[in-house]
Computed example of a mutant assay.
Amino acid sequence: MTTPPFSLLQRLLFGLIILLALPSCKRESKADAAFYYWKQKLNLNKAQHQLLDEVAHGKLYLRFFDIKWDSFAGKAHPEAIISFKEAVKTEKIIPVIFITNQTFEKLSPAGIDSLAMQSNQLLQRLAAAQKINYQRVQFDCDWTLGTKEKYFQFLKSFKAISNKQLEATIRLHQVKYQLRTGVPPVDKGVLMFYNMGKLSPNPQDPNSIYNPKDAATYISYLPKYTLPLNIALPLFSWSIHIRDGQIIQVYGKIGKKELHNPENFQPTAHKNVYRALKSFFTEGIYVKTDDLFKLEETDKALLEQATIQLAEHLNKEEQKTIIYYEIGNLDLSTFKTADFEEISAHF
C-alpha cells in the first residue's frame, strides 16, 4: 500500500519538532564589557556617562598614576596622578597603574618591595578620598627579558601587601615568546590587541594599530598561553606626521576633520594620506608645505575584522572582559551602543 504524502501543515509541524529537539547551535557570549579612562582628570560628559552605563554597566578601568624613573633624583616616582573633577558615579572601578620599563631597568633589587609598598599606599589614599572600594588592580608595563625578574617580583610583593586580585597587560609578542619573556604572576592577563605593526613613513604600509597580516603571526599561539586573558580593543585613531620620508611625531588630536580641510590639505594617491598645501600651525603643531599626514583609524569595520580574527583563537567558554581603549577621547559619532554589543558578542 502506498503511503500518502505529508500535507504542507504536517511537514511544517514535523520540521518544528525536529528543530525543538536539536540542541541550540547558537553560543551565547560569556564576555562582559568595560572601558579604559586614561586622561589625568576624571571628567566624563553626559554622553560618555550614558555610553559607560549602557555598554559596560559602569565598569571602568581607571588609570590612577604612572610610575617613572627620575634620573636626577635616582629613584622611581609617581607622575600624572589622577585628579577627580567629578564625584565617582560607579562602584565598578578597577585602578590601573602604568609603569615604565626603564623603572625596572634602573631600580635595584633591594628597592622592589619599597616601591610596591609606596605604590599601594598612594593608590589607597587616592581611592579612599573618593570612597572607591576596589578588589582588583591592573598594571601596565611592557617588560623585557632584562626586567622581567624585577617586574615579576614587584607584582608578587604588591599582591602580598595589598591582598588584591591583580591583572597585567600582555603584548602579542609576550604571548608568542612566553617561554622567553615569562608569564607574570597575576590572576589574569589583559591582551592588548592593538599597536601590532611598526609605525612607518611609507604611505603604502598597512595600519599599525591593527592589520590582519601582522596579527596572524601571533594569535595562533593564544591557545597555549598559560594565563587566562581579558581582551583590550582599540577605539583610537592617530595621524603620523611625515617630513622628507621621516616620522616627525604621532598625533591623536589631528584626525579626519582637520585633514579634510581643503584649505590646508589635499588627498594623495594613497588612501588616508594627506599632503599639506602650505605652512601653518594647527593644534600648536607646526606643519610645513608638502608634509604628509598618514591617518590610521579605528572604525566599526576594522574593529569587527579584528574581533572575528581574534575570537577564533580564544576559549569562548572562559569568562572574560572586553575592555575598550578608551572612553575619555572617544569620538562618540564613530561608535554607538549597538556597535559594542555586536563586537562583544563575538566572544
Rank of each mutant, 00 (worst) to 15 (best):
T2G: 12
L8T: 12
Q10L: 09
G15V: 14
L16Y: 11
A21D: 06
C25R: 10
A34K: 02
W38D: 01
Q40P: 03
L42K: 01
K46L: 11
Q48W: 04
H49V: 01
Q50N: 13
V55L: 03
A56I: 03
F64M: 14
F64H: 00
S83R: 15
E91D: 15
P95H: 03
T103C: 14
F104L: 09
A127M: 08
C141Q: 10
D142T: 09
Y151Q: 05
F154G: 05
S162N: 04
K164A: 09
T169W: 03
L172N: 09
Y177I: 02
P184V: 04
D187K: 05
G189P: 00
V190N: 01
F193A: 08
G197K: 00
K198F: 12
L199Y: 12
P201L: 04
N207A: 01
P212R: 14
D214I: 06
T217P: 00
S220F: 06
Y221I: 01
Y225A: 03
L229Y: 02
L233N: 05
P234K: 00
S239I: 03
S239N: 02
V250C: 08
K256Q: 13
E258V: 00
L259D: 02
E263I: 02
N264Y: 08
Q266T: 11
A269G: 13
K271V: 08
K271T: 12
Y274F: 15
L277A: 03
S279V: 03
F280T: 07
A301R: 10
Q305L: 09
Q309W: 07
L310C: 05
A311M: 08
K320C: 09
Y324M: 04
E326Y: 04
I327V: 14
L332Y: 08
F335V: 00
T337W: 02
D339L: 04
F340T: 02
E342N: 12
E342P: 06
H346I: 02
H346K: 15
